[in-house]
Design a protein around this nucleic acid. Structure first.
Lengths: 244, 244
DNA sequence: CGTAGCATTGATCGCTCTCAATTTTTGTGG
DNA sequence: CCACAAAAATTGAGAGCGATCAATGCTACG
């Protein structure tokens, strides 16, 4: 009997996997570890030999600048592959902290090497998904570089919403972000004070509503317009990948 | 006799390639095409079936927001692999324009598929380099989200400088950027007017100098400090890749 | 039930944008 | 090689968005 694999489940949403491939992916998740909210998983500049699959909870990656300000680089959700960015570096370029109580599955760099070597189709898929992430990162770049505070908040909420929906089919139009306004601000380059003003304003305009921490998207169309948001989860085309 | 391959040369800086691998990479560059400065190589939302290797010149990728402002996502140099970001999409998520007269080598998506399939080690290498690019993109995110105009200009100049040096050994401390101040601004989220003020200021402070379009880095240390810059080209560790 | 973290609101400040004018450089055709 | 036009760089003045500083309310958790 093979352990449930979050990661394989995530990948198979894009491409049906063979049993051998699923088994290989499941092996990456053989050592689940619980971490508490706020726990540091990886510190900048630490030597790294491990990667992770996130099974439960929320994890964020970030850097701290010399003046003490923080830029959150990415918020990870269950099924996400964490730390691939650091496959090429001996020292961590970013810190990892659990935003909520989480379960992570660490595995060795060398396990990834074997996977890439033995399963070229999975390697190709990972390569493509890595590129997809880069595209969504360019969306954020454009957001930070060229749009107003309100647009950034709208785009951020939409992005989180759609990413959560990929793995959680129960989400209709509301979701639990589980991030403080300060964390939102640190993700999109704003102060928590201004994030609050923007959220409030969007609430008054009937774009969103909040009830005990849950966001509800009331006017998706106008939100997409304000945030200049494009949903990249549509339009994906992986048909040309090697067949199993 | 095999055509010179820019791309293979770039990759072999990280990992010695076998003859078969080099030949496979060279095949991607069998159809060089000249494009003039300003030429549109790819337009947003166009259906895409091709990728490119840049052999000569400069190419940029960008998006235009509804209000007309432009965010430049990346500037490509010779040896770079262009459009990998679009491997998963049927329609281009970004535009590509030649910044100077260039030579590009288009090749079909399916040629990439075959490459990934037949040369797992190259696939693994591409996966890693794609992750390296993501890391450098996170550096830009932090720069845009959390640093001042002057810091962004300093970091941008350093980044361009170090990237050019990777393929051009003749570069000592000065280089030809070949970008207008407006293009610099569109890369780092500033107006051309303010880019100009920052450059001028840095010149007066003896950090850089300019003579007919060439930038010279006079005080690298202070520049790195001002821009919060970390050189990611050091510290790469690809030793654990499958051996040839 | 007390305390710490988070959300909310107000007042003020300053960095960067906008608008506009001028100079300098680059490119092109004669 | 020069004349002209177009593009790019430079400089100044003024405005606005989001930061900063500061105070208060709210909520969860031990």
């Amino acid at each position: 009997m093979v352990a449930e694999s979050c990661f394989a489940e995530q990948l198979s949403r894009h491409l049906p996997l063979t049993d051998a491939e699923q088994a290989a992916l499941a092996r990456l998740e053989e050592n689940p570890r619980k971490v508490k909210r706020g726990a540091v998983i990886q510190r900048v500049n630490d030597p790294i030999t491990e990667l992770f699959v996130l099974r439960e909870g929320r994890v964020m990656s970030f850097v701290i600048l010399p003046d003490g300000s923080r830029q959150i680089l990415r918020v990870y959700f269950p099924g996400d592959f964490i730390g691939s960015a650091s496959t090429i570096y001996t020292r961590a370029p970013e810190s990892l902290v659990a935003v909520s109580d989480s379960v992570i599955c660490p595995f060795d760099k060398h396990a990834l090497r074997r996977l890439l070597e033995e399963h070229p189709r999975v390697a190709a898929l990972l390569f493509l998904l890595s590129n997809a992430e880069r595209v969504s990162m360019t969306d954020r770049l454009a957001s930070l570089g060229r749009t107003s505070a309100k647009a950034r908040v709208a785009a951020f909420l939409l992005d989180m919403f759609h990413r959560l929906r990929v793995t959680d089919d129960s989400i209709e139009d509301s979701f639990d972000l589980k991030l403080t306004q300060e964390e939102i601000g640190d993700s999109i380059g704003l102060t928590s004070v201004h994030v609050n003003r923007m959220i409030r304003q969007m609430e008054q305009e009937g774009l969103i509503s909040r009830t005990n921490g849950r966001f509800r998207m009331l006017d998706m169309e106008r939100l997409e317009d304000i945030g200049h948001y494009t949903n990249r989860h549509r339009d994906m085309d992986l048909d040309w990948l090697p067949v199993g």
